[in-house]
Amino acid sequence: MAETREKLLEIKNLKKHFRIDRKHTLRAVDGISFDIYRGETFGLVGESGCGKSTAGRTILRLYDASDGEVKFHGENVHARKSKKELKSFTRSMQMIFQDPYASLNPRMTVKDIIAEGIDIHGLAKNKKERTERVNSLLKTVGLNTEHGNRYPHEFSGGQRQRIGIARALAVDPDFIVADEPISALDVSIQAQVVNLLKRLQKDHGLTYLFIAHDLSMVKHISDRVGVMYLGNMAEIATSKELYENPMHPYTQALLSAIPLADPEVERTRERIIVEGDVPSPISPPSGCRFRTRCPFATDICAKVVPEFQEYKKEHWVACHLYDERYADQMKQ
């Protein structure tokens, strides 16, 4: 990969906290930083409650950020914007949702669902052009033009997800956040949707933030992957490097927990099984947030928050195991 890659998004120390009541705050996203380059797919993985969906939504300004900033084309996403500015900004960022049943309005025809963005942004001069655009979008995602007159309930899950994709594409975005777009689908249909997303990326020069909990699918579709744990980023690397050489103990455990479709491997494999459950993000552990489940944790992990550092080229990890300053304390 060349050094001249253009940063499409720069995310710096992004935080999103939800206030529960006067005393408690849920720190869903608690200071994550990363860049997304133009034309790549950045995968974001983690278990439920790790803040990956909140991160995706905050990046799009569906949520206001509590702290930190997101720069898109060098412009601050969360800055004060006039209605007009906001409108032109939302056109360039779109989202595909997890649940294809809940994210399509049941009282609108597929044609109107897809054309909603076209109407709002005035992208079609007349009715004929609108219909043409919708039809070409339907074809792009592998549906028939007559499907446009039907309602969402007449479609299967995989087809609905295609409608959601067509809707996102309708306004010619640069960047799409796909929040668990395949989790609700069957395996054979998942592969269809993933192949479609990949093809569209090539044809339209799209950049994706692909959020999922299924590490094997993320590995397949992403160029780079970030692993989140309890609101923090544990590790970022290219997907190949992350799989072949996971450095953070949490990533290692996550990879080793995925059951592989190969009985021989499953029988002989040594697993790293992490004990217990994910702690509450309302009162996360001190120091490193993974320490309560980490097999390598020592005293220092409870005292000092590990810094997120680039230990190898393009491989960022937040763990004391690799920090020379703590080499002595981590040896025990």
């Binding site: 054979s188 269809q192 990949k198």
Partner: peptide, 16 residues
């Protein structure tokens, strides 16, 4: 064929 293989490079998945 529809399952992504963790050790394979990003070729197309064989969707049904």
């Amino acid at each position: 064929g529809s399952m992504p293989k963790l050790d394979a490079e990003g070729e197309e998945l064989q969707a049904i």
